[in-house]
Nucleic acid binder design. Sequence first.
DNA 1: TTGCAAATTAAAATCGATATTATTTGACTT
DNA 2: AAGTCAAATAATATCGATTTTAATTTGCAA
Lengths: 246, 246
Amino acid sequence: MDQIFKDLSDAESDKSAGTKSQSRTSLTYSAMREDIISGALEPGLKLKIEDLSKRYNVGSSPIREALSLLTSDALVSRNDQRGFRVVEVSAGEFDELLKTRIWIEQRALEESIAHGDTEWEENVILATYRLSRVARSTSEDSFIANEQWEKLHKQFHMSLLSACGSSILLRFCDQLYDRNTRYRHLSGPSAYPKRTINDEHTALSDAVIARDCEIAVKLLIEHYSATGNLLRKKILKRSVGAVKSN
Amino acid sequence: MDQIFKDLSDAESDKSAGTKSQSRTSLTYSAMREDIISGALEPGLKLKIEDLSKRYNVGSSPIREALSLLTSDALVSRNDQRGFRVVEVSAGEFDELLKTRIWIEQRALEESIAHGDTEWEENVILATYRLSRVARSTSEDSFIANEQWEKLHKQFHMSLLSACGSSILLRFCDQLYDRNTRYRHLSGPSAYPKRTINDEHTALSDAVIARDCEIAVKLLIEHYSATGNLLRKKILKRSVGAVKSN
DNA sequence: TTGCAAATTAAAATCGATATTATTTGACTT
DNA sequence: AAGTCAAATAATATCGATTTTAATTTGCAA
């Protein structure tokens, strides 16, 4: 928990017209969310209101509200009268996450393929292309997560599902995606040794565009299972050596 | 919005030992949740902090935290700098809800049937029996929602899914169930004229116990679709005549 | 009248102080 | 040495006042 945090206190210096000023609660929520998913705030960490107030430079009310919101994202746990914590990670939860994600995304993908229109198709093509153009790591030898890749990767996966016809289902997928990303970040750098992820993405995209539901679903499941298997080992290693903080 | 609300101010008069005192936030959250689902706080209503403070007899902080939590349940919407509202209802959202619920619960039911053990089976039997023993309405002629039935009905449906192996999926089902219940309450009394709901429940339960996945899923979908069709008409009628409050 | 802008009012958001509850410490007993 | 209890400390939860922002009204000019 020893890193530089953004100062939210002068967030409303919003010179750019049109941008309706966000509340401190919203800004703090986004910032904390980012910090939990990235691993900056590590699993199990006790989240003391006063500490957070100092770090994010806001009073206790926005902090508490942000924590309440994060609770529903399953990133923070609340325990009445004894505060908040970053939720723990475990191999068990990871497996459940993976399993559930596959169940839900399978259906979303099927519906998307069945109902997606031309615009959707083009969005998939675009998202696939954009993702293919950026590197996963900013460095060649050591792995340094590329912010841009993260963003495009999520956009790619969400684009596949976006025509499923249910914003409710999409919301679930979005949430599960982020929870999974957290595991990916926590598992440490260079999680995917030799696998040619880009090829997997392209193949998946092709099947989707060809409206080949069977293949697409098969590829999606394989894609998730493969990354999942790699991650699980790391998580296990991690959770054994984990230190319950403060 | 002119009804009696519970006074939360002396909630900690918790004589019963063992019950760890809940926070005002939690209590307020539950109370407001109940009031939104029951329709006491109607769709679109502006939720002014001060009003709510008076009604629920707590300060602004617990109110705001409770509202933040309700936001993630999709029961309350927040609009930065201009407060909270009870989320609107619409035929469109209802359809999406129904559709999504069927997608998700189908999978949950399939998994549950595939993996459920003896204990699960017995829970289903029990839940079915208990539900069959209470009346939907407390009155014979006019429809007056029976609190007990509501509880047991939810327990019945959740019991069917409870062995699906994913607490994450169950959480989703739970949330969607509640959102649907809100529609049911809003659609007004005596929503189900002649249909013998109890028979439908029994048939569903039988199929589940017999591990007949195909039939069970078919019955579940029919069950939801039938009630859904009835509700949709009422919702349409309602949303036309709705008055944007305050 | 109608349109616009300043002034007013109302509400949301935020802060910082207080009250409440949990946790730790340390003296004392067995 | 281990356990128990009470005081001291630390943290949470809550309140009420203040600041900031949005919505409304009012007054003035075209």
